[in-house]
Write a protein that binds this DNA or RNA. Structure first.
Length: 187
DNA sequence: CTTTCGATGATCT
DNA sequence: GATCATCGAAAGG
């Protein structure tokens, strides 16, 4: 399976399928363990009300990045999906760091490696992503997206930090990971 | 341990 | 003027 082949599917197939892949930026990154799907006709999606100056890359070619500023402070990154005439993407929420740990620690300055990439804003900071990367093609350097060696077990939960369509289970997390943005609550 | 709240800027109403 | 796909420090229990 190549990234281009995975991107042929629906936003939800792409989101679930991306879990376990490795994302690298200039050789720095890790395994994708948590994402969220933002589909067309999704009130929580930035693309819901059509294209604007911020979300334009969501309406561009699949396999590119949509990077936006969040709460005026952080950057968040999506993988753009193929939805002709609409905008859709998969928000990258957490990685299990595997490559370039030293560079990530330099950028993040946190005591615990668990905090390097466990959140959409943390992830972009660790990888050095910013608005300059909005629209960038993930199939070309300095980016690399590598398939997993074995399939992951993925669970669906409601998405985090939104106020519309809050009950849709469109967050995809690798079962058993300790690198997601939220630890599983005790039962 | 949990909850609250400020930062900060683009977009929406 | 309000909201927001967030984070981290501070305050409370």
């Amino acid at each position: 399976m190549t990234l281009a082949e995975l991107l042929q599917g629906s936003v939800h197939e792409v989101a679930a399928g991306l879990v376990g892949w490795t994302l690298l930026v200039d050789g720095v990154g890790g395994r994708i363990v948590e994402v969220e799907a933002y589909d067309e006709d999704d009130p929580a999606s930035h693309a819901y009300r059509g294209a604007n100056a911020r979300n334009g890359s969501m309406f561009g070619p699949p396999g590119h990045l949509y990077v936006y500023r969040s709460y005026g402070i952080h950057w968040c990154a999506n993988v753009v999906c193929e939805r002709p005439g609409h905008g859709a993407g998969v928000l990258l929420r957490a990685l299990q760091p595997t490559h370039g740990l030293d560079r990530m620690r330099d950028r993040r300055r946190v005591a615990d490696d668990r905090l390097l990439c466990s959140g959409p804003g943390r992830l972009t900071q660790a990888l050095g992503l910013s608005g300059a990367d909005d629209g960038a093609d993930l199939s070309r350097p300095p980016f690399a997206v590598l398939p997993p060696s074995a399939p992951s077990v993925v669970e669906r939960t409601p998405r985090i930090g939104i106020s519309r369509a809050v009950e849709q289970p469109w967050r995809y997390v690798e079962v058993g990971t300790s690198w997601s943005s939220r630890r599983r609550r005790a039962a």
